[in-house]
Write a protein that binds this DNA or RNA. Structure first.
Length: 748
DNA sequence: TCGGTTCAGAGTATT
DNA sequence: TCTGAACCGA
């Protein structure tokens, strides 16, 4: 390329990466393996396009899934280019949809200051709907209704477009419609609505669509394998005749089908956009060779892949270490010891990750780390903007902007307590329904003591609104947390100190909000810029904030495999590698469930830079029962030569679990179990259980026959005595849990 | 309005 | 087994 600055950053790329970055013209699909420099390619592509004059910063649309990814893209971009990336359309699907809807709220049928419901708010809104509609919450559980609505929206369907062939679904559809009406009445939108509404906006409004199609000449999408049906359609609306779409993804890292992601979008994109340019990024800059070879060998067991093989020139490195523990507590103890040894060798705790399939597994690990005084940090859990006190403060702020927000009204009408009880609020809701107004709109209409208190609350809101006039955003927030009585309330609470600190922190968060530079979207007719308060409230909904515990200390990182995606660590402990846990037993009920579990395992393995540990336990306490699990089939899918078994002799184990598709189940029992003494730690099971049974005369891996289900093999055991149950994989009838005291099983 | 009891549910999660 | 939410009585 002729441009000097451009060749500057191209020099840092390998050949494939450079090819991807500079491909022009035409749409591009980049198959970016784990650790192959995907973000670098995306950002360099943008920088290259701009610096070579092929597009203005203004003509770029770059979409990610998480705020973190969007931020990273911005940061890297501003390091490469002398431009201000804040004004660029780089953001999450939801963030950009929000921006579009703010700019064209009237065309989209939304009020000027429409507010965004996060999942919590949405669930509360649904509960409220079910109650006012007198719906039986046992037959229509709020969570199920929420899921139904979101799934439909993610498919791009309004209530009218959802097919219902049974009464239950028909009722769901009615609730969906009623929910949308309620949201519309209250001027609020949920996450899925942001996308659906902006999709409808562009679909119906041809001039607007053309405007954006002309504007965005280059559309770049990160994590393409995670897009759902609606997001894909959304992108298609933006992609005009002159737009070039640059999609980056990895089908092998698709682990979110349970929330609507469609890997198939990658091949659909290839077909519909007639993609001629498919680039594979296979050189990995993260992990040592043995780790990559394990990952490659594992994922090769999946079918229907686009195909990819990671390689590195970093050398083979160490073997992958494998530990078989007698129990989950033993596994945890080993983990503590091993981490101590690593730290003694000079490894940073913060470069060590402990991964598990499901959150429930973290407890026993945490307990061990805590007892040993090892600093650790657990990812997940409540995030800043999800905290109750913050939600309360935000509810007051929302009411300043839009008093008709009934969700916010109900949240704080009696918080702090001001004598507005449930009965008063019910009466108010009835009155509001009769008069067809919001709760706030009918507050003055109620008589009696409740009415007086409601009027006082309405006055409080009015006073706060008047008092914050002319103040900047942080001052507004500071005023509201005091005037609402929140601070005073928490001062009287024993555990209120931290909450008060959080409320004060909210003022800082408000101060840190950047108002976007004026965008030309707002120069369009009918476009209105956001107020700082609206911007802040949207930010609070769209970005839940940090969910990690205190930073700064050198702590071991603990998280689920899902949350580890996109991260990397020097050493990774992958724990609980047992059948039923990982792959999770529920996954066997899903179409392609096992393959998704395998991809998850692939993601987990590829997090490790230098050292990878795999561990599993023979017995594990789960939901109050001791379970006996087979080791995960995924361990057996790794090349034996790359594994180094710790502590116990090398395994001599047949295909004891095989798979439903593998009829070659022999009578071989599982791996050799250790001595019964090992069970003393955790078990209230008879000692005989240690031999691999649970005192019931059955062993894992044993071949059995059932009168109705036919022949099968024992895959797991739990409980003892009359409680004893066995999970059996039948050759014909699938996998079932059977109570051994009931089921007449024949041993073979 | 609090505090105790009861009951269901316990997979992965971003916005 | 353990947790969180919902519910009831003082």
């Amino acid at each position: 390329m002729t441009d000097r600055p451009a060749s500057g950053f191209l020099a840092h790329l390998n050949e494939r990466q450079r090819e991807a970055v500079t491909l022009v013209p035409g749409h591009v699909l980049v198959l970016a393996g784990a650790g192959s420099g995907k973000t670098r390619v995306l950002t360099t592509r943008i920088a290259w396009l701009i610096s070579t004059g092929q597009v203005g910063a203004h003509g770029v649309l770059a979409v990610t899934f998480t705020n973190k990814a969007a931020r990273e893209m911005r940061t890297r971009l501003s390091a490469m280019l002398p431009i201000e990336p804040r004004g660029m359309w780089i953001g999450t699907f939801h963030g950009l949809a929000n921006r579009l809807l703010r700019a064209h709220h009237r065309d989209a049928g939304l009020p000027h200051g429409f507010q965004i419901l996060d999942s919590q708010d949405q669930l509360a809104a649904i509960k409220r709907l079910l109650r006012t509609a007198g719906v039986d919450e046992d037959r229509f559980q709020p969570r199920a209704v929420q899921h139904f609505i979101n799934a439909a929206k993610d498919e791009g369907r309004r209530a009218g477009a959802v097919e219902a062939f049974d009464d239950h679904t028909r009722r769901m559809v009615e609730l969906y419609a009623a929910y949308d009406e309620q949201c519309q009445r209250e001027g609020v939108v949920d996450f899925a609505e942001l996308l659906l509404r902006s999709h409808e906006l562009l679909e119906r409004n041809a001039p607007l669509r053309e405007h954006y199609r002309n504007r965005f000449r280059h559309i770049l999408v990160d994590e393409f394998q995670d897009t759902n049906a609606l997001q894909y359609e959304w992108l298609k609306l933006f992609a005009g005749e002159h737009s070039v779409v640059f999609a980056v993804g990895d089908d092998d890292q698709s682990i979110y089908s349970f929330r609507g992601a469609r890997v198939a979008n990658m091949t659909t994109f290839e077909r519909e956009f007639q993609v001629r340019n498919l680039v594979r990024l296979e050189q990995n800059y993260r992990s040592h060779g043995n780790i990559l070879d394990c990952a490659n060998a594992l994922i090769a067991h999946n079918s229907a892949r686009l195909g990819k093989n990671l390689w590195t020139d970093a050398g083979a490195g160490e073997p992958v270490r494998v530990l078989e523990a007698l129990s989950d507590t033993r596994e945890a103890q080993w983990l503590v010891d091993e981490i101590a040894a690593l730290v003694a060798e000079g490894w940073m705790r913060s470069d060590i990750a402990v991964l598990y399939r499901s959150n429930a597994q973290s407890r026993v690990l945490e307990h061990a780390l805590f007892s040993a005084g090892v600093p650790y940090r657990v990812y997940g859990g409540l995030r800043f903007f999800e905290r109750a006190e913050i939600k309360h403060a935000l509810a007051y702020l929302r009411l300043l902007d839009n008093p008709d927000d009934d969700g916010a009204f109900l949240r704080v009408a009696n918080f702090p307590a001001r004598g507005i009880g449930a009965r008063t609020l019910e009466a108010l809701q009835d009155e509001a329904r009769r008069r067809g107004t919001s709760l706030h709109g009918s507050a003055a209409a109620l008589t009696g003591a409740g009415g007086t208190r409601l009027a006082a609350f309405a006055q409080l809101l009015a006073r706060m609104r008047a008092e914050v006039q002319g103040h900047d955003l942080p001052a507004m927030v500071a005023h509201v947390i005091e005037a609402s009585g929140l601070i005073a309330h928490y001062e009287t609470e024993r555990e209120g100190r931290e909450r008060i600190e959080n409320l004060r922190e909210l003022v800082n968060a408000a101060a840190a909000i950047e108002t976007l530079p004026e965008d030309d979207a707002f120069a369009l007719p009918d476009a209105a810029p956001e107020t700082p308060l609206a911007t802040f409230l949207a930010h609070a909904s769209l970005e839940a904030g940090d969910n990690q515990a205190t930073e700064g200390t050198d702590a071991v990182q603990m998280m689920t495999v899902h949350s580890a995606k996109g991260l990397e660590f020097d050493a990774v402990f992958l724990t609980g590698l047992e059948e039923g846990l990982f792959p999770h037993e529920n996954s066997s009920l899903e179409a392609r469930g096992l393959e998704e579990e395998r991809r998850l395992m692939y993601v987990a393995i590829t997090r490790a830079r230098q050292r990878l540990y795999l561990s599993f336990a023979q017995t594990r306490m789960l939901y109050g029962h001791t379970r006996y699990n087979l080791r995960s089939r995924f361990i057996d899918e790794l090349p034996a030569g790359l594994l180094k078994w710790l502590g116990v002799p090398a395994p001599k184990r047949g295909s004891a679990h095989g798979s439903a598709f593998d009829p070659a189940l022999s009578g071989m029992n599982g791996h050799g179990h250790g001595s019964p003494a090992g069970l003393r730690t955790g078990a209230r099971v008879p000692a005989s259980a240690a031999a691999g049974g649970n005192g019931s005369g059955f062993r894992i891996g044993q071949n059995v026959a059932h009168a109705r289900f036919g022949p099968g093999v024992v895959v797991a055991l739990e409980g003892s005595g009359s409680d004893a149950r066995a999970q059996i994989r039948f050759e014909q009838a699938g996998t079932k849990w059977l109570a051994l005291s009931v089921a007449r099983l024949q041993t073979l």
